[in-house]
Design a protein around this nucleic acid. Structure first.
Ligand SMILES: [Zn+2]
Ligand SMILES: [Zn+2]
Ligand SMILES: [Zn+2]
Ligand SMILES: [Zn+2]
Lengths: 156, 156
DNA sequence: TTATGTAACGTTATAATATAACATCTTCAG
DNA sequence: CTGAAGATGTTATATTATAACGTTACATAA
């Protein structure tokens, strides 16, 4: 059954995401504590960018504090280490799909359903960097948010 | 004196911005009411992107209601007609520097001082559009927010 | 001109997102 | 062990934005 396979794939990708995070945190001498790991799992499990208070809801069912700082501190850690990205236009958080140093590119975000797809685009980001230079701006590597409409939503 | 000249230039640019807005609203059969005009002026006067509640503070000194919907409704109007842009990363609003139909490009935003510079970049935005196509995303014209550090702040 | 519908605005309340501040507990180097 | 730094718990509050409903101003047509 297709549903079961999708769930299994999801489980695998969550496992892989956590494993990558373990590795990165080790490199950075940072501690992926149970809380931080759990928040990362919840973000990985979510198929779309997810809000902080939604994550907090889920944390309640585990044994963590359900006060806002709990989730915001974990998210700050994950953001710092490049394990998740924040989508500013929707105040949501999404797991990074290629968590390694210095990665940069585009994040396409569907304005209808919220789906987000991350794409490394070195050439394009270089062009943006040059364009910034012309205005005296130094542009660090980053994930640039692009609003659009995904194919699924265009069908409707 | 340099200061006086700068102020005079600012006054001129506010006048020009309002004049452009008048023209655009006329074309669109939209009403640039005193409130909306005043909010636009306040955004134009501000040398940097400005928050909604800061605008609301300023509106108090005129004769308008000081409740949040006042400023948010005016901002929504101005956004709809392309007269201001919202900076998602800082929840601020800035006057558009080339308010005309279908314009698209980049908005460089300094992470230190908040300064924002808008730059039309048709070629670059076309490239982004093509990149979106490859992922099934349709990318409408828009101002893409880029985080950076301005030259002034790099001196510090 | 007055009637009438719509747009704009006033007002009150509340939602949604995020952080400050301080106490307690855990980890780890020395 | 012990002290310092890091992580979490807890309470309170800041910041940004919208819902809902009533009133006023404006356009347009009978
Ligand atoms: Zn990423
Ligand atoms: Zn979609
Ligand atoms: Zn613009
Ligand atoms: Zn700056």
């Amino acid at each position: 059954m297709a549903g079961k396979q999708r769930v299994e794939q999801a489980v695998v990708s969550v496992k892989r995401g956590v494993a990558q995070a373990e590795s990165i945190c080790k490199q950075n001498h940072a501690r992926l504590t149970p809380l931080r790991r759990r928040v990362l799992e919840l973000v990985l499990i979510s198929r779309k960018p997810v809000g902080a208070y939604k994550l907090l809801e889920d944390l309640k069912h585990d044994d963590f504090s359900d006060a806002p700082p709990t989730v915001y501190r974990a998210l700050e850690f994950l953001l710092t280490h490049g394990l998740v990205h924040r989508i500013a236009k929707s105040n949501t958080y999404v797991a990074c799909t290629h968590p390694h140093d210095d990665h940069h590119g585009l994040m396409f975000v569907c304005r209808e359903c919220g789906e987000a797809i991350e794409s490394e685009e070195h050439r394009l980001l270089q062009d943006i960097g040059r364009c910034g230079d012309e205005h005296g701006f130094r542009i660090p590597n980053q994930i640039v948010e692009i609003e659009g409409i995904c194919s699924a939503c265009r069908m409707n």
